[in-house]
Structure formats: C-alpha cells, structure tokens
C-alpha cells in the first residue's frame, strides 16, 4: 500500500492511499497525483518530499518523484504518533506485510524497536487470507469477530496452514464469528509477544492498516491486559510522520 500525506503549514490538506502494482514508481506517482488533485496543485509547488517505508529507495533521489528526504519507518511512526498523541510511548505498527513495534521516550527518541518481517502470519495478509477462507469481506472481519465471546486457540502459526485450519473449523460447524475472533486472537498473540520484547509502557498506540480491524484491537487489549489507543486513520501515521519531517526540514 502506498500512502501519501500533503501538509500545508503542518496541517493535513490532502491524503491518498493506493494498492501498489509491480511498477512501484508508477504507483507512487499515481498516489501523489491523486493527492495533488485533491487540492489542485502540481509537483513543483511541493517544497519537500520525504520518503519512508519499504520502497523508499525507489523514490529517494530517483526520478520521477525525486524525494529529497528519506526517513526510517520507525522514526516516521514515532513522529506521527507523538504529534497526535504526545503521551505515546510504544507504537505498534502492523501493516499489510510487516509488523513492528517501537518504544520511545517523552522526547520522541527511539529507545528500542522490534519487527516481524517476512513472515505473513504477523501481518495484514494473514487477515486477508482468513477472510477469503471464510468468504467474507476483509472490512467486515473485525466487526464479525466482536460478535463472538469464544476463542478456539489456533494450532497453526503459518498463514498457509491457518487457512486449512480455518476451513477445518468451518467443517466442524464452528461459527464464523468464533473463527474470526480466534484468528484475531492468534495474530494479536504474535504481535503482543513481539512487542513485549521491547517492554510495555503506557500509552500503547496502534497504527497501520491492521488497527482499523476492531476485532484485532479488542484482541490486543485482552492479550496485553492493558488499554490501547487507536489513532484516527491509523494507516496514514507513517506517511504523516514523514510529512512532518519534510515540514521541519524546510524550517531549518
């Protein structure tokens, strides 16, 4: 997923979010154009462009985007989260393909971070795959899970195996709500275990696309046994933080 945030005087004026194709440069251009069209500007009117995320090397100092600033995802996450919620100390970012957690101090300086990369079972694709197996829309997955009060602990720790397990559970007449809850609990368990490695400190903030899944948020609260804050439009926090970096660069 490519997310673009445009700021004018540190205020968000445009946002766009598109699925990345295999030509990443073209996808970024498309996302940027969509955002620019929202406020009727052209690229030359943008002072600074900060790139973050997995594909930042693709656009940093590379035409046609020529981003002039790059920043690490964890730094962007912290910056974006603290700007909106200054008491954030642990930011848990689960996106489509990766999950990570960052801990910072009150000044926003990174104390420690951990990530669960290259294993689909700790990321959004896990939920997408299970939604397919249950034949429901991925947008409805969270709400469905909240209708259940029962979790069946999942045996599989792998997305591919979990799909078979979900189908097996369906055949055993377990309801879709119970399965959805079990799936969210399973992934929350992994994300929580990963987060514990850097230490839990309030406030715990959830960002990234996964935070829009209300079932996952509920599962995280239960697994971590503490309250968590979900920032509004969580999937944009990384882009927002990068944009703030771009805004501050200008002021130097």
């Amino acid at each position: 997923m490519i997310k673009v945030v445009l700021l004018d005087d540190r205020k968000t004026v445009a946002k766009s979010n598109i699925l990345s194709g295999f030509d990443q440069n073209a996808s970024v251009e498309s996302a940027l154009n969509t955002a620019m069209q929202q406020i009727g500007i052209i690229k030359s009117e943008i002072t600074n462009i900060a790139a973050t995320g997995v594909a930042r090397k693709v656009i940093y100092l590379q035409p046609p985007i020529n981003a002039n600033i790059e920043t690490a995802e964890v730094l962007a996450d912290i910056k974006g989260a603290i700007d909106i919620h200054p008491s954030a100390r642990v930011v848990i970012d689960v996106g489509a393909e990766e999950g990570k957690a960052v801990r910072c101090d009150e000044k926003g300086k990174v104390i420690d971070f951990v990530s669960n990369e290259r294993c689909a079972a700790g990321a959004g694709v896990f939920i997408e795959a299970m939604s397919r197996a249950l034949e429901i829309d991925v947008q409805d997955f969270g709400a469905l899970a909240l209708q259940s009060q029962k979790t069946i602990p999942m045996n599989s720790q792998c997305t591919v195996f979990a799909e078979s397990e979900v189908i097996s559970l369906l055949h055993s007449n377990i309801t879709k709500e119970d399965i959805a809850r079990s799936v969210n609990d399973a992934i929350a368990g992994r994300v929580a275990s990963m987060t514990r490695r850097i230490g839990l400190e309030n406030d715990l903030v959830l960002v990234g696309g996964m935070a829009k899944n209300v079932g996952y948020v509920d599962a995280m609260k239960r697994t971590l046994q503490t309250d968590v804050i979900v920032l509004p439009e969580p999937e944009f926090i990384g882009a927002y933080g990068a944009a703030l970096t771009a805004a501050e660069y200008q002021q130097k």
């Binding site: 295999f22 393909e97 290259r118 294993c119 689909a120 694709v125 795959a129 997305t159 591919v160």
Partner: peptide
C-alpha cells in the same frame, strides 16, 4: 523467488507472471 514465505513467494510469482 523468496524462499522464506509462501505467501510472499506467491505475490512475487504473480508479479513475474504479469511481467
């Protein structure tokens, strides 16, 4: 393709097919 995850290997494969 990426040998470390079937899910990601599958996305890579889709990309290769499209190319």
């Amino acid at each position: 393709v990426s040998s470390t995850c079937v899910v990601f290997a599958k996305s890579e494969a889709l990309g290769l097919l499209r190319q």
